[in-house]
Every structure is written in structure tokens, then in C-alpha cells.
């Protein structure tokens, strides 16, 4: 028979926080959840404005300590984030369906 190297499946560590206020900046979000959990990947994504009332910001965090995920979820899943105008946005915290994070730094220069 064929032997394949058995990959040990790591527990999921990358979470997504969805339905954040569309006017939020990365700083707004970081302040709102302060302290930001220890991570090796953080990405804040502004909304697709074309979606109008369906437009939200979202953020991804890859936790270094996966044990912290449950308490983070308990704290922020359903947590109501408030934008500058006082609009309320209950957030959703979930495991990201795509668990991969980039190997390289954001600003690594391409030798073009």
C-alpha cells in the first residue's frame, strides 16, 4: 500500500468578526475590542459600498492561543458595536471558513 505522511490537523485558529459598522476604521475596531488578542494575522476589511444597507465591515484574527477563542466569542458574538452616529450593529463571531493565513508580510516587495 501507499503511505502518506499524516498531517495532524491543527484546531481552527482564524476567526472572522462580521457585520461591523460600515463606517468603522481599523482603529475604531481595535479600540472597541481592546486588548486585541495575541495573533499572527489581523486583517480589517472595509465594506463593499455598492451593497448599500447590506454593507458591513469585517475583521479576521488568527489567534496564537486557540483557548482564548471561546471567551472572545462569548464576549463579542452578538456584541453591539456602535458607530459615530449611534447606529447599532450586532456582530457575528465565527470560525473563518478559510483557515489559511499568508506566510509572507503584507509589504514584502515584489521583484518586478
Amino acid at each position: 500500500g501507499k503511505f502518506k505522511k499524516e498531517k495532524v490537523q491543527a484546531p481552527p485558529s482564524k476567526i472572522v468578526i462580521r457585520k461591523l459598522p460600515p463606517t468603522f476604521t481599523e482603529e475604531d475596531f481595535k479600540n472597541a475590542i481592546s486588548p486585541v488578542p495575541e495573533n499572527n494575522y489581523f486583517s480589517f476589511v472595509p465594506p463593499d459600498k455598492v451593497l448599500g444597507t447590506h454593507a458591513f465591515s469585517r475583521a479576521y484574527i488568527n489567534f496564537l492561543n486557540t483557548e482564548e477563542i471561546v471567551s472572545f466569542r462569548d464576549r463579542f458574538d452578538g456584541y453591539v458595536f456602535v458607530d459615530q452616529k449611534g447606529n447599532e450593529y450586532p456582530a457575528l463571531v465565527e470560525y473563518a471558513p478559510f483557515q489559511k493565513i499568508p506566510k509572507s508580510n503584507h509589504n514584502k516587495k515584489d521583484i518586478r
Binding site: 486583517s43 476589511v45 451593497l51 471558513p97 478559510f98 489559511k100 499568508p102 506566510k103 509572507s104 515584489d110
Partner: peptide
């Protein structure tokens, strides 16, 4: 191959869009 993080961002965005479609 040159910008690893772009792939991650695009896949995450595509999955978000698929989910958004189901929700709306």
C-alpha cells in the same frame, strides 16, 4: 507566488460574499 496575502484576502472576500448571498 509574489503576494501571498492577496490570495488570502480574495478567498476570504469571496466566501463572505457567498455567505452574504445566503443571508440576504
Amino acid at each position: 507566488a509574489h503576494y501571498d496575502w492577496v490570495g488570502t484576502a480574495v478567498v476570504d472576500g469571496t466566501l463572505e460574499d457567498i455567505r452574504f448571498g445566503m443571508e440576504t
